[in-house]
Design a protein around this nucleic acid. Sequence first.
DNA 1: GCCCGCGCATTTACAGCGTAAACACTTGTG
DNA 2: CACAAGTGTTTACGCTGTAAATGCGCGGGC
Lengths: 264, 264
Amino acid sequence: MSQPDPTADPDSPEGRGGAAAAVPAAPPGAGRAGLDRRRILGAAIEYIDAHGLNALTMRRLGAHLGVEAMALYRYVPGREQLLDGVVESVIDELYGDPDVHLAASRGWQDYLQRLAHGVRRIALAHPEVFPLVATRPPAAPWVRPPLRSLRWVESFLDALIDSGFTEEAAVAAYRAYSSFLLGHLLLEVSQKGVKISPLDQPEGVPDAAASTELGDYPTVVRLESLLSLDESAAEFEEALENLLGRLEVVLTESRTPRRGDPRS
Amino acid sequence: MSQPDPTADPDSPEGRGGAAAAVPAAPPGAGRAGLDRRRILGAAIEYIDAHGLNALTMRRLGAHLGVEAMALYRYVPGREQLLDGVVESVIDELYGDPDVHLAASRGWQDYLQRLAHGVRRIALAHPEVFPLVATRPPAAPWVRPPLRSLRWVESFLDALIDSGFTEEAAVAAYRAYSSFLLGHLLLEVSQKGVKISPLDQPEGVPDAAASTELGDYPTVVRLESLLSLDESAAEFEEALENLLGRLEVVLTESRTPRRGDPRS
DNA sequence: GCCCGCGCATTTACAGCGTAAACACTTGTG
DNA sequence: CACAAGTGTTTACGCTGTAAATGCGCGGGC
């Protein structure tokens, strides 16, 4: 019963212990009633996970915490900043993940692999929050979604530079890596959402209109089962490994400078 | 004066004629006053491009069109559907782009290249709208952002299958391609946004606090200029070519079946 | 014991939002 | 002229984010 399915997605919430909890449990000894920023952000994440982003209003979040909406304003400047805090909070789960390291102690590939899976775990644990992670404007050009934290940017660059990447190559790798992560995970959670949401289509003759409008797209119809197949985990792995391979080429090429490169 | 800078980004709005206009100009002969869905969607895109997504309200859009908010409801069921229409409208620009073909008449690589640049042109022309394109939930698992149209999915799959891809390979290519496009373009427009928005930081001593808080991240500080550099165009090209190369391998491998594959 | 401030939550209030419903007006048709 | 259809406006309601005033309980000086 507790033995997980060997074919299960190792990053999916059910496939792991409790490593991706929304909030790492308030400081031990904190009673029940006290309102504070940490508890508010945790409740907000919980609420979004449960009811979706649009359903989150200050009043409802207050009610969820057993408090009036205005009480929240003592700990959070406003709704926008609350959402910023939610994003930050969710990304902070990375620090609590024992499988993700801040330094490349076992090689840069291992480091990037663990980081990618850590972020993926977060995305899958909070599919309703992740689009927010992706679309909130970054504070500076160099802090990109989905990492969103200077500490991770620093760690990323250090890991690669320590492993022999030039500064330029490390920066290029950072950009390629973030855009890969963002694109893949955003599509993955949005695909996950679509499988659930067709419950708002309780029509009479269910597929009559749909089928006719699909008539013009025979290939889509024919490949529907292939297209609907969820191979996200395998595709993630493959794309990630391809990216790492590509970076490896960059690394070794930068170590053996090619013709036309003057001195050094 | 009209000669574009040879180093300019060919997909940037300034670098081209008028191929990426928001709306292909209402049917010729349509007077000025008449309200209709097309005009409303066009005005909405215009408004979002000018003032951002959050600033778009039914009342303000009505005012922008010289009309009361409620008048819009005769042509659009509600705000959500208006946004859906905006997304659809923006993506429809692809059909008007003479550089993007619906069939792979000059090879699948050419087809994918043109398609990618067409979508990139749209993203750059409407940076405020693009996150919407990326995050609106798709209607079905197989219609993914950023293409968002059955016709494009059909065209994509046909192009690849006609070029020799197996059905499985075509579907896999479709997924890899969409996630590449989405990730790269989303980061590109969000980076574009951050360069503009620091105008809401007219503080007294501008970088005093910022510098101190950056003190813990020496690598980020040292590489700041590299990190801020905008090489989106080149990186897009490189990542796209890498993806195409990867797909080419898939294609040729599927043509010469490997060991262990029974018959054929 | 008393009272005072002070930290926290509530109450009240307001402008703006999306949108349902009733209304007024224009226009083509008999 | 009457009428019907189509289009835009008015009015109204419940909900939103949030500024401002209000109430409340608790720990320390007198």
